[in-house]
C-alpha cells in the first residue's frame, strides 16, 4: 500500500527552520496537509484532537522528547497504530534500538535529503 498523498502529517520539531525544511520536502513529495508541533507534549494534544496518517518527529525536545512521545503514542489504544518516523541527530545504536523497541516505524538521521525522506515514508506504508 502506497502512502496516501492526502493524509494529514504531523511534523514535530523544536526548530522552526527544520519544520520549514520538512514541510517543503513533503510538499515536493506531494503531501500538502502538514501540521506542526514544537515538542512531544504539544504533539500529543494535536494527535488526540485529529487523526493523522503519519508522525514525523525529532528526538531531542523540551519538555517532552520525541522518544517519550513515541512511547505515549504506542501506549494509547486510540493512537497506537499511527505510523511514526523519528528524524533526529541522535545516531547512536542505543537510540535506534530503543526507538525500535518502543515501536518506531522508521528512523532517519539528520542531515538527510528528500530521497531518504521519500524512501522511508514509502517503506513505512509498503512494509
Amino acid at each position: 500500500m502506497a502512502a496516501d498523498i492526502g493524509m494529514p502529517i504531523l511534523v514535530v520539531d523544536d526548530y522552526k527552520t527544520m519544520i520549514r525544511i520538512i514541510r517543503n520536502l513533503l510538499k515536493q513529495l506531494g503531501f500538502e496537509d502538514v501540521d506542526e508541533a514544537a515538542d512531544g507534549k504539544e504533539a500529543l494534544g494535536k494527535l488526540r484532537g485529529k487523526k493523522y496518517g503519519l508522525v514525523i518527529s525529532d528526538w531531542n525536545m523540551e519538555p517532552m522528547t520525541g522518544y517519550e512521545l513515541l512511547r505515549e503514542v504506542r501506549a494509547d489504544p486510540s493512537l497506537s497504530r499511527t505510523p511514526f518516523i523519528m528524524v533526529t541527530a541522535e545516531s547512536k545504536t542505543e537510540n535506534v534500538v530503543a526507538a525500535k523497541k518502543a515501536g518506531v516505524n522508521n528512523y532517519i538521521v539528520k542531515p538527510f535529503n528528500a530521497a531518504t525522506l521519500k524512501n522511508k515514508i514509502d517503506s513505512v506504508f509498503t512494509a
Binding site: 545504536t93 530503543a98 538521521v109
Partner: peptide, 16 residues
C-alpha cells in the same frame, strides 16, 4: 534516561 546525546562527532554515531 532519555538517551539525549545530541549530534555525534566523527565516527561516534551511525550513518543512515
Amino acid at each position: 534516561e532519555l538517551l539525549l546525546h545530541g549530534p555525534s562527532i566523527a565516527d561516534d554515531g551511525n550513518t543512515q
